[in-house]
């Protein structure tokens, strides 16, 4: 089973599946730093909530004193006290945890 996971992992690494599928990739460092790739723009921005548009949905980031350290065409770096990152898939509905 572990072998299979490793195979999938290496496949993803080799083929850069994120870029091929143009899916959002979210990297967080502790609760202070979030790095989102392949976003498609900011839907709303306050110091408590940032809503990003991503392919096939949106990402909500909740926290306090949020700030966008860097905003580029595909990348955004968010810093602040991050409490919750919520991924919304438009295909599956608003709640990523709900089953269709």
């Amino acid at each position: 089973m572990l072998k299979l996971i490793n195979q999938v992992k290496s496949y993803i690494d080799n083929h850069d599946i994120v870029n091929e599928l143009k899916l959002a990739k979210v990297t967080t460092v502790g609760t202070i730093h979030t790095y989102v790739e392949n976003h498609q723009g900011i839907i709303s921005f306050t110091s408590k909530q940032i809503k990003l548009e991503v392919p096939n949905g949106s990402i909500d980031i909740f926290g306090k004193e949020l700030m966008i350290n860097r905003l580029e065409k595909d990348e955004v770096i968010i810093e602040g006290e991050i409490d919750l990152i919520k991924l919304n898939d438009s295909d599956r509905g608003d709640n990523p945890f709900s089953q269709r």
Binding site: G41, I42, F45, T46, S47, L66, M67, I68, N69, R70, L71, E72, K73
Partner: peptide, 16 residues
Amino acid sequence: FELCRRHQVKLFKLKE
């Protein structure tokens, strides 16, 4: 923000 993104204008330290 969206226009900036489209025109490839990088924004730094964006704060409300």
